[in-house]
Design a protein around this nucleic acid. Structure first.
Length: 369
DNA sequence: TAAACGTGGTG
DNA sequence: TCACCAAGTTT
């Protein structure tokens, strides 16, 4: 390891740092619904939801989720459809499929008790190095590091660590740093305080150093380099995909929907029939060929799309031409598809991109034949 | 190691 | 407006 200020840190400095941080946390910590108790299940659910997701976004999802699935057993026995619906709009949907799979394993293999060892908990689906440390420390008081983006930002400044936090290998550097300074008396509060500080004071841009409870311990504050840390490279090469989608209705007003594949993007979520465009033929023609091939539908699509929707993911952009059409009310031949009434549509879990399609359909394309 | 994997907020 | 961000994990 190579962070001079940390190598030479004194035991008394560590004690003072812990005290300043924990006193601040005790006074300033937010009143969040997953902090009402230390139920390992609730800690677990909150940590999964909070992965790459803001606190304000998570709160209402967490409250609904716990109300609907209050215990390990409740979630283990729930239908995946219900679980996905509860996650609808939160994103990174593999999180919740992994969570339910892991909860089932805990229910069956561990008698419904969340394991309390690093090895056992890390073997569960969806629980990586951060989440295992978070659950162990917060739910069980085990002094394990829980290094997320906040912790790397805060500690990069405090110890003047210039490693690139975008690199996977850098996390270990910060885990080692945490091991040296974590409070053995209250690892739960210590880990949460580090993250809370990152969220409220030691923010990515314009950190509020003058309000910081540990600025006296902060190398970057003394050097005036807080605005330059942490080092984070990484660019995303945005990929564009052009799609055509169909909102097909029967004379009875039912709509054709289909379920996405079990893996990959938006796995197992529902959507309107659609196809990726090659860019060669007309979108309408390519969509008609798809509908005939997959469903045997002689579709009667409108000449022009009633909506053009753009949806931006973290790593790609969809541009969707949406067509309205009619179809016979016979049962769809394709697997993983259904004909549902317009009221029933909203009982299924859709990605936000396809919620946009449905919203436009109701506004523009519906009730005209 | 790097890319896949969502979404809504923000300067 | 738009690139970047937010309590990461999997492959």
């Amino acid at each position: 390891m190579n962070f001079p200020s940390l190598d030479h840190i004194e035991k008394t400095d560590i004690t003072q740092f812990q005290q300043d941080l924990l006193n601040w946390y005790k006074e300033e910590k937010r009143d969040l619904p997953w902090r009402y108790d230390q139920d390992p299940y609730k800690v677990w659910v909150s940590e999964i939801m909070l992965q790459q997701t803001r606190v304000d976004t998570v709160i209402p999802y967490f409250e609904r989720f716990i109300e609907q699935f209050p215990t390990i057993e409740a979630l283990a026995e729930a239908e995946e459809e219900k679980v996905l619906k509860a996650w609808e709009g939160l994103g990174y949907y593999s999180r919740v499929r992994n969570l339910q799979a892991a909860v089932k394993e805990v229910h069956e293999q561990y008698g419904g008790k969340v394991p309390d060892t690093k090895e056992a908990i890390s073997s569960l689906k969806g629980i990586g190095p951060y989440t295992s440390g978070a659950i162990l420390s917060i739910a069980y008081g085990v002094p394990e590091p829980a290094v997320d983006g906040n912790v790397m930002r805060v500690l990069s400044r405090i110890f003047s660590i210039w490693d690139d936090i975008a690199k996977a290998s850098t996390r270990k550097v910060f885990e080692e740093a945490v091991r040296r300074i974590i409070s053995k008396e209250d690892p739960s509060s210590f880990n949460q305080a580090l993250m809370e500080l990152g969220a409220l004071i030691c923010t990515p841009t314009s950190p509020a150093c003058l309000l910081c409870p540990v600025r006296d311990h902060c190398h970057a504050f003394h050097e005036g380099t807080a605005d330059e840390l942490p080092i984070k490279t990484k660019k995303k090469n945005m990929r564009h995909v052009h799609l055509a989608a169909a909102v097909l209705q029967t004379e009875g007003g039912e709509v054709l929907i289909q379920k996405r594949p079990e893996s990959g993007l938006l796995a197992n979520l529902w959507e309107f029939p659609n196809t990726e465009l090659s860019g060669h033929g007309h979108p309408k023609v390519e969509l008609e060929l798809f509908l005939e091939r997959e469903y045997g539908i002689e579709s009667t699509l409108d000449k022009e799309p009633f909506a053009k929707i753009q949806h931006v993911f973290s790593h790609l952009t969809w541009d969707i031409d949406v067509y309205k059409g009619t179809m016979a009310s016979s049962v769809p031949a394709r697997e993983r598809s259904r004909l549902v009434s317009s009221e029933e549509v909203e009982q299924y879990a859709f990605s936000v991109s396809h919620q946009k399609i449905w919203k436009q359909a109701k506004k523009n394309g519906w009730n005209h034949s």
